[in-house]
Protein backbone atom coordinates (compact mmCIF):
# COMPACT_ATOMS: atom_id res chain seq x y z
CA UNK A 1 0.00 0.00 0.00
CA UNK A 2 0.96 3.59 -0.57
CA UNK A 3 0.75 6.26 2.06
CA UNK A 4 -2.18 8.59 2.19
CA UNK A 5 -3.55 11.37 4.31
CA UNK A 6 -5.54 9.87 7.14
CA UNK A 7 -7.88 12.31 8.77
CA UNK A 8 -10.03 11.52 11.75
CA UNK A 9 -12.66 14.25 12.11
CA UNK A 10 -14.55 14.54 15.37
CA UNK A 11 -17.85 15.71 13.91
CA UNK A 12 -20.04 14.66 11.05
CA UNK A 13 -19.89 18.14 9.53
CA UNK A 14 -16.11 18.03 9.47
CA UNK A 15 -16.22 14.57 7.95
CA UNK A 16 -18.46 15.49 5.06
CA UNK A 17 -16.45 18.65 4.48
CA UNK A 18 -13.40 16.45 3.93
CA UNK A 19 -15.07 14.27 1.29
CA UNK A 20 -14.88 15.22 -2.34
CA UNK A 21 -17.55 14.65 -4.97
CA UNK A 22 -15.03 14.68 -7.81
CA UNK A 23 -11.93 12.95 -6.50
CA UNK A 24 -12.27 9.16 -6.52
CA UNK A 25 -9.12 8.79 -4.45
CA UNK A 26 -10.78 10.38 -1.43
CA UNK A 27 -13.02 8.07 0.55
CA UNK A 28 -14.50 7.51 3.96
CA UNK A 29 -13.25 4.57 5.99
CA UNK A 30 -15.22 2.99 8.81
CA UNK A 31 -14.23 -0.57 9.76
CA UNK A 32 -12.23 -0.68 6.56
CA UNK A 33 -12.29 -4.45 6.10
CA UNK A 34 -13.49 -4.27 2.49
CA UNK A 35 -11.56 -1.13 1.67
CA UNK A 36 -8.32 -2.58 3.00
CA UNK A 37 -8.67 -5.57 0.69
CA UNK A 38 -8.98 -3.24 -2.28
CA UNK A 39 -6.04 -1.18 -1.08
CA UNK A 40 -3.83 -4.21 -0.50
CA UNK A 41 -4.43 -5.42 -4.03
CA UNK A 42 -3.92 -1.88 -5.31
CA UNK A 43 -7.41 -1.81 -6.81
CA UNK A 44 -7.88 1.34 -4.80
CA UNK A 45 -5.08 3.76 -3.97
CA UNK A 46 -6.39 6.57 -1.80
CA UNK A 47 -4.84 10.00 -1.47
CA UNK A 48 -7.01 10.71 1.55
CA UNK A 49 -9.04 8.54 3.86
CA UNK A 50 -11.59 10.17 6.10
CA UNK A 51 -11.92 7.96 9.15
CA UNK A 52 -15.35 7.88 10.74
CA UNK A 53 -14.10 6.18 13.89
CA UNK A 54 -14.24 9.29 16.07
CA UNK A 55 -17.85 9.96 15.11
CA UNK A 56 -19.37 7.58 17.59
CA UNK A 57 -22.36 9.31 19.13
CA UNK A 58 -25.42 9.18 16.98
CA UNK A 59 -23.79 7.08 14.32
CA UNK A 60 -23.41 4.13 16.61
CA UNK A 61 -26.08 2.04 18.26
CA UNK A 62 -29.60 0.79 17.77
CA UNK A 63 -32.68 2.69 18.82
CA UNK A 64 -36.39 2.00 18.59
CA UNK A 65 -38.12 4.25 16.08
CA UNK A 66 -41.70 5.37 16.17
CA UNK A 67 -43.83 2.54 14.79
CA UNK A 68 -41.74 -0.17 16.40
CA UNK A 69 -39.01 -0.15 13.82
CA UNK A 70 -35.33 0.35 14.51
CA UNK A 71 -32.87 3.05 13.61
CA UNK A 72 -29.42 1.56 13.29
CA UNK A 73 -26.42 3.86 13.30
CA UNK A 74 -24.18 3.37 10.31
CA UNK A 75 -21.09 2.93 12.49
CA UNK A 76 -22.66 0.07 14.43
CA UNK A 77 -20.42 -2.94 13.97
CA UNK A 78 -21.88 -6.10 12.54
CA UNK A 79 -20.93 -7.88 15.78
CA UNK A 80 -22.85 -5.33 17.83
CA UNK A 81 -25.83 -6.06 15.61
CA UNK A 82 -25.32 -9.79 15.93
CA UNK A 83 -25.33 -9.63 19.72
CA UNK A 84 -28.11 -7.07 20.02
CA UNK A 85 -31.16 -8.45 21.88
CA UNK A 86 -33.15 -5.60 20.34
CA UNK A 87 -32.29 -6.74 16.84
CA UNK A 88 -32.90 -10.37 17.70
CA UNK A 89 -36.30 -9.49 19.04
CA UNK A 90 -37.26 -7.28 16.13
CA UNK A 91 -35.66 -8.89 13.09
CA UNK A 92 -34.48 -12.36 14.05
CA UNK A 93 -33.85 -13.04 10.39
CA UNK A 94 -31.05 -10.45 10.50
CA UNK A 95 -29.50 -11.83 13.69
CA UNK A 96 -29.52 -15.27 12.20
CA UNK A 97 -27.88 -14.13 8.97
CA UNK A 98 -25.18 -12.26 10.86
CA UNK A 99 -23.96 -15.47 12.44
CA UNK A 100 -22.57 -16.70 9.14
CA UNK A 101 -21.63 -13.36 7.64
CA UNK A 102 -17.89 -13.56 6.91
CA UNK A 103 -16.15 -14.31 10.22
CA UNK A 104 -16.14 -12.93 13.73
CA UNK A 105 -13.06 -10.78 13.35
CA UNK A 106 -14.57 -9.11 10.31
CA UNK A 107 -17.90 -8.64 12.05
CA UNK A 108 -16.08 -7.13 15.04
CA UNK A 109 -14.71 -4.40 12.82
CA UNK A 110 -16.98 -4.01 9.79
CA UNK A 111 -19.91 -1.60 10.11
CA UNK A 112 -23.42 -1.68 8.75
CA UNK A 113 -22.77 1.49 6.74
CA UNK A 114 -19.70 0.02 5.14
CA UNK A 115 -21.47 -3.26 4.47
CA UNK A 116 -24.12 -1.42 2.46
CA UNK A 117 -21.93 1.22 0.81
CA UNK A 118 -19.57 -1.42 -0.61
CA UNK A 119 -22.33 -2.55 -2.98
CA UNK A 120 -20.96 -6.08 -3.23
CA UNK A 121 -23.77 -8.30 -4.56
CA UNK A 122 -22.61 -11.22 -2.36
CA UNK A 123 -23.35 -9.49 0.94
CA UNK A 124 -25.94 -11.04 3.24
CA UNK A 125 -27.85 -8.11 4.72
CA UNK A 126 -28.89 -6.27 1.52
CA UNK A 127 -31.40 -8.89 0.33
CA UNK A 128 -32.86 -9.10 3.84
CA UNK A 129 -33.21 -5.33 4.06
CA UNK A 130 -34.82 -5.33 0.62
CA UNK A 131 -37.56 -7.56 2.00
CA UNK A 132 -37.93 -5.82 5.36
CA UNK A 133 -38.15 -2.45 3.62
CA UNK A 134 -36.52 0.63 5.00
CA UNK A 135 -34.48 3.61 4.07
CA UNK A 136 -30.94 4.81 4.26
CA UNK A 137 -29.96 8.21 5.58
CA UNK A 138 -27.30 9.82 3.39
CA UNK A 139 -25.62 13.05 4.42
CA UNK A 140 -23.47 15.42 2.44
CA UNK A 141 -22.68 19.11 2.30
CA UNK A 142 -26.01 19.40 0.49
CA UNK A 143 -27.84 18.09 3.55
CA UNK A 144 -29.56 14.84 4.33
CA UNK A 145 -31.68 12.69 2.08
CA UNK A 146 -33.43 9.40 2.68
CA UNK A 147 -32.81 6.76 0.05
CA UNK A 148 -35.37 3.95 -0.01
CA UNK A 149 -33.49 0.68 0.27
CA UNK A 150 -35.16 -0.44 -2.94
CA UNK A 151 -33.39 2.39 -4.80
CA UNK A 152 -30.01 1.90 -3.19
CA UNK A 153 -28.38 -0.97 -5.09
CA UNK A 154 -28.18 0.06 -8.71
CA UNK A 155 -25.57 -2.21 -10.29
CA UNK A 156 -22.53 -4.40 -9.86
CA UNK A 157 -20.71 -2.80 -6.91
CA UNK A 158 -22.75 0.31 -7.57
CA UNK A 159 -25.03 2.14 -5.19
CA UNK A 160 -26.95 5.38 -5.48
CA UNK A 161 -24.72 6.97 -2.84
CA UNK A 162 -22.79 9.96 -4.19
CA UNK A 163 -18.99 10.10 -3.75
CA UNK A 164 -19.29 12.78 -1.10
CA UNK A 165 -22.22 11.25 0.77
CA UNK A 166 -22.02 9.32 4.00
CA UNK A 167 -24.50 6.81 5.31
CA UNK A 168 -25.42 7.83 8.83
CA UNK A 169 -28.24 5.45 9.68
CA UNK A 170 -30.60 2.84 8.40
CA UNK A 171 -34.28 2.89 9.35
CA UNK A 172 -36.02 -0.45 9.26
CA UNK A 173 -39.79 -0.40 9.75
CA UNK A 174 -41.59 -2.39 12.40
CA UNK A 175 -42.99 -5.64 11.18
CA UNK A 176 -46.55 -6.67 11.80
CA UNK A 177 -47.17 -9.90 13.66
CA UNK A 178 -47.72 -12.90 11.48
CA UNK A 179 -45.04 -12.01 8.94
CA UNK A 180 -42.85 -14.86 7.83
CA UNK A 181 -39.20 -14.14 7.11
CA UNK A 182 -36.25 -16.22 6.12
CA UNK A 183 -32.79 -15.85 4.62
CA UNK A 184 -31.41 -18.82 2.75
CA UNK A 185 -27.70 -18.77 1.96
CA UNK A 186 -26.16 -21.39 -0.26
CA UNK A 187 -22.39 -21.74 -0.44
CA UNK A 188 -21.14 -24.22 -3.01
CA UNK A 189 -17.69 -24.77 -1.55
CA UNK A 190 -16.61 -24.24 2.07
CA UNK A 191 -19.00 -23.02 4.75
CA UNK A 192 -17.25 -19.65 4.86
CA UNK A 193 -17.42 -19.13 1.10
CA UNK A 194 -19.25 -16.27 -0.52
CA UNK A 195 -22.74 -17.46 -1.40
CA UNK A 196 -23.62 -18.87 -4.79
CA UNK A 197 -27.06 -17.50 -4.09
CA UNK A 198 -28.74 -15.68 -1.23
CA UNK A 199 -32.51 -15.52 -0.99
CA UNK A 200 -34.50 -13.44 1.47
CA UNK A 201 -38.25 -13.85 1.70
CA UNK A 202 -40.94 -11.97 3.62
CA UNK A 203 -44.63 -12.64 3.45
CA UNK A 204 -47.77 -12.41 5.48
CA UNK A 205 -50.52 -14.95 5.58
CA UNK A 206 -54.13 -14.40 6.50
CA UNK A 207 -56.44 -17.40 6.78
CA UNK A 208 -53.89 -19.48 4.93
CA UNK A 209 -53.79 -17.02 2.02
CA UNK A 210 -50.70 -14.97 1.31
CA UNK A 211 -51.60 -11.30 1.47
CA UNK A 212 -48.24 -9.63 0.91
CA UNK A 213 -44.94 -11.07 -0.36
CA UNK A 214 -41.39 -9.95 -1.00
CA UNK A 215 -38.59 -12.04 -2.44
CA UNK A 216 -35.06 -10.77 -2.90
CA UNK A 217 -32.17 -12.58 -4.55
CA UNK A 218 -28.47 -11.77 -4.16
CA UNK A 219 -25.09 -13.19 -5.16
CA UNK A 220 -26.46 -14.94 -8.24
CA UNK A 221 -27.26 -11.60 -9.80
CA UNK A 222 -25.31 -8.43 -10.48
CA UNK A 223 -27.00 -6.71 -7.56
CA UNK A 224 -29.40 -7.72 -4.81
CA UNK A 225 -32.89 -7.37 -6.26
CA UNK A 226 -36.54 -8.01 -5.64
CA UNK A 227 -38.25 -10.50 -7.97
CA UNK A 228 -41.63 -8.96 -8.63
CA UNK A 229 -43.04 -11.68 -10.90
CA UNK A 230 -42.41 -14.32 -8.27
CA UNK A 231 -43.92 -12.13 -5.56
CA UNK A 232 -47.04 -11.61 -7.69
CA UNK A 233 -47.59 -15.34 -7.96
CA UNK A 234 -47.68 -15.65 -4.19
CA UNK A 235 -50.20 -12.93 -3.46
CA UNK A 236 -53.71 -14.24 -2.91
CA UNK A 237 -52.43 -17.80 -3.20
CA UNK A 238 -52.34 -20.37 -0.42
CA UNK A 239 -49.00 -20.94 1.34
CA UNK A 240 -48.39 -24.38 -0.12
CA UNK A 241 -45.43 -26.15 -1.58
CA UNK A 242 -46.99 -26.05 -5.05
CA UNK A 243 -47.40 -22.30 -4.88
CA UNK A 244 -43.88 -21.85 -3.53
CA UNK A 245 -42.55 -23.98 -6.39
CA UNK A 246 -44.39 -21.90 -8.96
CA UNK A 247 -42.96 -18.74 -7.48
CA UNK A 248 -39.50 -20.32 -7.41
CA UNK A 249 -39.79 -21.30 -11.07
CA UNK A 250 -40.84 -17.77 -11.94
CA UNK A 251 -37.87 -16.36 -10.01
CA UNK A 252 -35.50 -18.73 -11.80
CA UNK A 253 -36.92 -17.67 -15.16
CA UNK A 254 -36.70 -14.02 -14.27
CA UNK A 255 -33.14 -13.68 -12.93
CA UNK A 256 -30.17 -13.07 -15.14
CA UNK A 257 -27.43 -14.86 -13.27
CA UNK A 258 -23.80 -13.84 -13.48
CA UNK A 259 -21.39 -16.76 -13.84
CA UNK A 260 -18.47 -16.66 -11.44
CA UNK A 261 -16.37 -18.96 -9.26
CA UNK A 262 -19.47 -19.90 -7.31
CA UNK A 263 -21.30 -21.35 -10.25
CA UNK A 264 -22.17 -21.06 -13.91
CA UNK A 265 -25.19 -19.01 -14.91
CA UNK A 266 -27.33 -22.07 -15.50
CA UNK A 267 -26.34 -23.62 -12.18
CA UNK A 268 -27.11 -20.38 -10.38
CA UNK A 269 -30.47 -20.19 -12.09
CA UNK A 270 -31.16 -23.67 -10.79
CA UNK A 271 -30.01 -22.69 -7.33
CA UNK A 272 -32.32 -19.67 -7.37
CA UNK A 273 -35.18 -22.07 -8.11
CA UNK A 274 -34.23 -24.43 -5.29
CA UNK A 275 -33.49 -21.81 -2.69
CA UNK A 276 -36.43 -19.49 -3.31
CA UNK A 277 -38.67 -22.47 -2.72
CA UNK A 278 -36.69 -23.58 0.32
CA UNK A 279 -36.66 -20.07 1.79
CA UNK A 280 -40.43 -19.83 1.45
CA UNK A 281 -40.84 -23.23 3.07
CA UNK A 282 -38.34 -22.59 5.84
CA UNK A 283 -39.99 -19.29 6.66
CA UNK A 284 -43.30 -21.05 7.15
CA UNK A 285 -41.80 -23.90 9.14
CA UNK A 286 -39.58 -21.82 11.38
CA UNK A 287 -42.30 -19.32 12.31
CA UNK A 288 -39.44 -16.89 12.47
CA UNK A 289 -41.59 -13.85 12.02
CA UNK A 290 -40.32 -10.38 11.47
CA UNK A 291 -42.07 -8.89 14.48
CA UNK A 292 -40.58 -11.38 16.88
Amino acid sequence: MKSFDLVEPATLDEAIALLDSQDRSVRAIAGGTALMLMMKTRLFQPTRLVSLRQLDGDLRGIRVNEGGGLRIGAMTSLAELEYSPLLAGTYPVMSQALRTLSNIRIRNVATLGGHLAHGDPHMDLPPILLTLGGRISAVSRRGRRWIPISDFFVGYYQTSLAKDELITAVDVPGQSPGVYCWYEKFTARSADDWPTVGVAVWYSVDSNVITEARIAVSAATERPMRIAVAEALLINAPATRQVFSKAADAAADEVQPIADLHGSASYKREMVRVHVRRALEHALNSRSNGAG
Binding site: L6, G32, M36, S51, N103, R105, N108
Partner: peptide, 27 residues
Protein backbone atom coordinates in the same frame (compact mmCIF):
# COMPACT_ATOMS: atom_id res chain seq x y z
CA UNK B 1 -3.79 -15.05 3.60
CA UNK B 2 -3.71 -11.27 3.87
CA UNK B 3 -7.48 -11.11 3.62
CA UNK B 4 -8.72 -11.57 7.16
CA UNK B 5 -9.85 -15.10 6.39
CA UNK B 6 -7.25 -17.37 8.01
CA UNK B 7 -6.90 -15.74 11.42
CA UNK B 8 -3.11 -16.04 11.67
CA UNK B 9 -2.79 -12.29 12.27
CA UNK B 10 -5.36 -12.12 15.07
CA UNK B 11 -4.77 -9.57 17.83
CA UNK B 12 -7.16 -8.31 20.48
CA UNK B 13 -7.88 -4.57 20.34
CA UNK B 14 -9.75 -3.42 23.44
CA UNK B 15 -10.57 -7.06 24.02
CA UNK B 16 -12.05 -7.54 20.56
CA UNK B 17 -10.42 -9.90 18.05
CA UNK B 18 -9.37 -8.22 14.83
CA UNK B 19 -7.44 -9.29 11.76
CA UNK B 20 -4.16 -7.45 12.15
CA UNK B 21 -3.51 -7.62 8.41
CA UNK B 22 -6.64 -5.55 7.66
CA UNK B 23 -6.34 -3.17 10.57
CA UNK B 24 -4.50 0.09 10.16
CA UNK B 25 -1.92 0.58 12.88
CA UNK B 26 -3.08 4.16 13.18
CA UNK B 27 -6.36 2.90 14.57
Amino acid sequence: CGQGLCGCCTALVNGIAVSGCLYLAAF
